[in-house]
């Protein structure tokens, strides 16, 4: 469904992504794990159209999205839930959700209320507080709102950038449970995470990115058992 082919992205003169290829099948949760500065966020931003790759392509189905402006990428069906959530903090919850559907607001007005209803049933913590300002929500609730807002675009692939960032472990669990729930409903997810353990538990497949390159790819279940992954990302000690 989503195919990234030999992407190279620069920030100024610095090469951040070096020959990165990956693919995500329909209905999968795929996670990208890596340390700080490995290029995870840049990778998602490149897929979302915020950064333009110097070479390489991104395909969604048969459509090449890698040279489109952001608004067309959203329209094509890729929606990014950014790092730090970035909700519209002085707008209400309901307005945040409505703006998530911006690209289809004119053509699809009728179904938007039903979709908001769906999102609220997915995130019951937001229900009954629709007119509350998003800035007054707790971190976990803001993350739920950000994901809900991303889903309002009805994306074919949902990109999540560090959904666990700055959240308490219990809240992280709640968010990841929701992701599993989303997968059951048929949503395709590509997620970047530093919390490798939590991410690998819910994901089908995983990629490990190091200094801008994919160093390992495989099934998430196998990665949890992999000694190298355990020592580098899961906090296990290697016993000689």
């Amino acid at each position: 469904m989503l195919k990234v082919v030999k992407i190279e992205t620069y920030h100024g003169r610095i090469k951040v992504l070096n020959n990165v290829s990956l693919d995500v099948e329909k209905g999968e949760i795929v996670t990208i794990i890596g340390a700080n500065g490995a290029g995870k966020t840049t990778l998602l931003s490149t897929i979302a159209g915020i950064h333009r790759p110097k070479s390489g392509q991104v395909y969604l189905g048969t459509i090449q999205t890698s040279c489109m402006p952001v608004q067309n990428v959203v329209k094509a069906g890729i929606s990014l839930v950014p790092e730090h959530r970035e909700v519209f903090d002085s707008l209400s919850i309901i307005d945040n959700l409505k703006l998530g559907a911006y690209h289809r607001y004119k053509t699809d007005k009728k179904s938007i209320n039903d979709d908001i209803e769906n999102i609220l049933s997915l995130f019951p913590a937001l229900r009954g507080r629709e007119s509350q300002l998003a800035g007054t929500l707790s971190g976990g609730e803001q993350q739920m709102l950000a994901i809900g807002r991303g889903l309002m675009a009805k994306p074919k692939v949902l990109l999540l950038d560090e959904p666990s960032l700055g959240l308490a472990p219990l809240v992280v669990k709640e968010i990841f449970d929701i992701l599993v729930n989303l997968k059951k409903r048929g949503t395709t997810i590509l997620m970047v995470e530093q919390n490798a353990k939590a991410a690998l538990k819910v994901a089908d497949r995983a990629y490990i990115i190091e200094r801008g390159q994919i160093s390992l790819a495989g099934r998430a279940r196998d990665m949890l058992q992999d000694a190298r992954v355990q020592s580098a990302y899961l906090g296990a000690r290697l016993h000689a």
């Binding site: 979302a48 915020i50 402006p69 952001v70 608004q71 959203v74 329209k75 929606s79 990014l80 950014p82 970035e86 909700v87 519209f88 903090d89 002085s90 707008l91 307005d95 409505k98 703006l99 998530g100 911006y102 690209h103 607001y105 807002r149 675009a153």
Partner: peptide
């Protein structure tokens, strides 16, 4: 109005507004 809110979204958070597909 929806247009007004889209304008406000640009003011509040330009980056997120772009991600919503607001041109």
């Amino acid at each position: 109005t929806y247009w007004g809110k889209a304008l406000r979204a640009c003011v509040v958070n330009k980056f997120a507004a772009r991600l919503m597909g607001i041109n």
